[in-house]
Design a protein around this nucleic acid. Structure first.
Lengths: 278, 278
DNA sequence: ACAAATTTGCAAGAAATATTGCAAACTCAA
DNA sequence: TTGAGTTTGCAATATTTCTTGCAAATTTGT
């Protein structure tokens, strides 16, 4: 029996104050699920003691147990790798594609909470001012690395994808200079060779830009510019590249704008030409 | 300043115990956001006092303030959910990133008008039943091709990325058999060599799946399965890969589900291993 | 290898949160 | 209107959670 059913079963025996509390819970369940008894009581305009009593009346051991039930029900906390499957099964119009699109939408909607326009502009500026750009990404991140290499080559930038193999990487880094920029990606774990890459870049004075998920916040040594935003999808299982890819696209567009003359149109014409003859 | 920035700021000065705490937070932010300092500490195997101190070190007034920040950023309450919908749908935020996110959202919202659940399921089935998978994409599409190669290799499928160079392509196609599947991508123009690839596949009886933008409808010869949905972005300017990438992700998830037993769990464990040792 | 500095856990106690006895306020029936 | 029954808030108490001084353990520099 779901929590809300449990509550509505009691609906006839609820006192006025209790009813106000329940209405409040139904109205904003997540807020109630996160707050304290006192907060809920205040929102409903009743005394906290009443909230405490309500929890017991509804059959819970304590207010804490009631709140836990609320959290279970209303807060999406990924429990297992099968969460997505579960979501699909439960949702009425459950299609994989639809659910996926919904999650991406939600993640995209929050993107600006993590990345400021300045960060985009600065990243674009660093890359466009660089004499050469070295792009580093491995595992899934290699996909984005490849994309950025392609995009910046279209701008006419001297762009290279760094080897994922430590030896090749070391060799490529020998030529790194102070006018160069390193763009790197990391999700989940910092890639092998990351530290060496960053240290070398710092030594020679090359600028470093990093695009990452949450885990980027822990990276040491720190890049000059860090653009970190959580990805969408299941924590433990399948995380998509939509959010970081959108950040990349924003940088590409900003880069196109900072290149003054070259507007998007020119980018496109060039792009079409290249695609046609590629 | 966002939580991730605060963490990043302190990343170099974190003590071992503090780092373990932060890793724990990053790995399962929602759990941390809901729990107490003691619970987080226990999960990280350190003393709760350390958790309390970490909160202060990151610049928060108290552990409670730290947890509030976690909730803000990582728990999708209804307020945050509706907030983005409004922001995204209506207002033009005036930033590149915001505008981009808005466009992607719109395109994603329409994706189910073009792709049915059956198409996703069939594509997944074809790929998972194939003995070998050959993936073909060039220009920007190469990015998605690479992604799919990585994803299906994780499923343990014998997956190969086809050469974009006509000669190499011809050579690789020699071994194509009736149990194989070809997954190809095309945007704007059909790639060079596309016709030859499709004809060869038809001759030997290999199944073909194509993911494309609007232009896919015009392709000849026709693939066995065509998944075409318009991309986001200006028609003539900068079109992103978000929509086709989401279709790809849906196929990967569907493939994982049809692989019944192990599905995402296996994908995850194997994936983590691969990433760690890659 | 030693001393200084840092980190960590322990445990006391501070603060926040929840519970409950009690009395005032309220409701309803006669 | 009165009185029995119910509901509610108050305030004291209990419980949970957080903070901090201190000392042990660990690390760092010489």
């Amino acid at each position: 029996m779901s929590l809300l059913e449990k509550i509505s079963d009691q609906a006839t025996t609820l006192t006025p104050s209790e009813r106000r509390l329940v209405e409040n819970v139904i109205d904003s369940p997540t807020t109630a699920a996160l707050g304290t008894a006192g907060e809920l009581a205040k929102a409903a305009g009743v005394h906290e003691a009443t909230a405490s009593r309500l929890a017991k009346k509804l059959g819970f051991e304590s207010y804490a147990a009631f709140r836990d039930a609320l959290r279970d029900e209303f807060i999406a906390t990924r429990e297992t790798a099968t969460r997505f499957e579960k979501t699909i099964a439960e949702s009425t119009s459950g299609t994989i594609l639809g659910e996926l699109a919904r999650e991406e939408t939600q993640a995209l909607g929050r993107i600006e909470e993590f990345i400021t326009p300045e960060q985009i502009a600065e990243a674009a500026q660093i890359l466009m001012r660089a004499q050469r750009i070295f792009v580093y990404g491995y595992g899934n991140a290699e996909v984005l690395a490849l994309m950025m290499v392609k995009r910046f080559r279209r701008f006419g930038k001297d762009t290279h994808q760094l080897d994922t193999d430590p030896r090749g990487l070391a060799e490529q880094m020998l030529g790194l200079g102070s006018d160069d920029a390193v763009l790197s990606f990391a999700f989940r774990r910092p890639p092998r060779g990351y530290a060496a890459l960053m240290e070398t870049a710092k030594e020679v004075g090359a600028k470093t830009v990093m695009i990452s998920g949450k885990s980027g916040a822990l990276l040491t040594p720190r890049p000059d510019r860090l653009l970190a935003a959580p990805r969408s999808g299941d924590q433990d299982a399948f995380q998509t590249l939509t959010v970081p890819m959108t950040i990349c696209n924003a940088i590409v567009i900003a880069a196109g704008l900072t290149a003054k003359e070259e507007s998007l149109k020119k980018l496109d014409r060039l792009g079409q030409l290249i695609e046609r003859f590629e």
